[in-house]
Design a protein around this nucleic acid. Sequence first.
DNA 1: GTGGTCTAGACCACG
DNA 2: GTGGTCTAGACCACC
Lengths: 117, 117, 117, 117
Amino acid sequence: MFSTVDKHSGVPAYIQIINILKREILLGRLGEEDQLPPVRELERIFGVNVNTVMRALEHLQFEGILEARHGVGYFITSATRASSEIVDIMRNAVKKLRSQNVDLQMATLLMEEVWKE
Amino acid sequence: MFSTVDKHSGVPAYIQIINILKREILLGRLGEEDQLPPVRELERIFGVNVNTVMRALEHLQFEGILEARHGVGYFITSATRASSEIVDIMRNAVKKLRSQNVDLQMATLLMEEVWKE
Amino acid sequence: MFSTVDKHSGVPAYIQIINILKREILLGRLGEEDQLPPVRELERIFGVNVNTVMRALEHLQFEGILEARHGVGYFITSATRASSEIVDIMRNAVKKLRSQNVDLQMATLLMEEVWKE
Amino acid sequence: MFSTVDKHSGVPAYIQIINILKREILLGRLGEEDQLPPVRELERIFGVNVNTVMRALEHLQFEGILEARHGVGYFITSATRASSEIVDIMRNAVKKLRSQNVDLQMATLLMEEVWKE
DNA sequence: GTGGTCTAGACCACG
DNA sequence: GTGGTCTAGACCACC
């Protein structure tokens, strides 16, 4: 279902989980009121420890994106989905950047900089 | 001269310094053969300890971007600057994204996702 | 377990640590998937500060020889071991050189020179 | 006449000069009683500052390899030359090592280790 | 005056 | 309990 956690990337596992879930929402694969798979299954899917999963969910609750319903499960309370228009804008920009031999790191730095303008 | 380090962002100071310097190069504010300010001044500028500065510079040396001349200073040896064309592409995309109320974090996640496609 | 760091040799301690660990791998005393002793123990073993140990490990990570698993430990990811054939070649050459009263420094200089030919 | 100093290697210039001169002696290109070129010419040859040259010569004097004759120049007082036999041994070993894809750094580490046996 | 290395020790992050 | 980051400050090496 979800992408997996890359243990060799240096990025903390729980951060990766947060990002994976946010991405799912962003791309509309998870929407408001949807229920997440049970923690024990997330544990298996991501190949990490329960504590690590819990820490990620805790953060998302803190951000108001998730809600825990005791004895039931985790539900998405607020989903900001990228419109297909936005995805297209990004796809277009990325295509041009790649054709100019820009790599992802440079693109990210550049975007941060331009964002501030 | 440079942007400053944000000590509360959670991102290690030395990583921020690496990114600041890379950005300066990317945007053409630092070019090949340019000399960096002395380490002790960077210390002051960034508001961190010498060790932290040195750690950043060490990494950049390893990547072949900087060169240390002992007793002389640090020099930029390889500067890949973003062409104005690339900057324009990014500026354009960012403008559209902002008008759609996308924030930087979402934009970054989306870019990573699209980049993989 | 490992050889010790010579603080009076002029060679930086962290470089010595890098070389000691590389040597252990080269000679097959450390192999792929092996876990290193915890940083705090390496500190004790080598008689240096944590920072110095970490600096060595950081370099080895960058070279792709080690991998850090946060909260778990350091693991060897890529181990190139010297074949017994290679060791024999070296042993043979060294034996002859010593019988000619060549010292290690001379042998090293000579090897560098011959290597370039 | 001599090899040149590589300012980008990270190895201090004066150490490189020491090694170059030792190598010249080792390979028999400089012998006992030979006079070195004047310091001002060494300066030019190596592309470094006088101080740097002087520091190298100082070290070699300390090791008893050179002698300064005031107002005349520097002379070699003790030259240990590698016999052609030794060079052949090394050449042979290096050839075999290279054919096994060993690089210079690994070879050096290995030699140091075997030397101790 | 420039870079380079190290220590001691605190405090944080991850699993 | 494991790794990771940072500071303060000393002392050294190089040009």
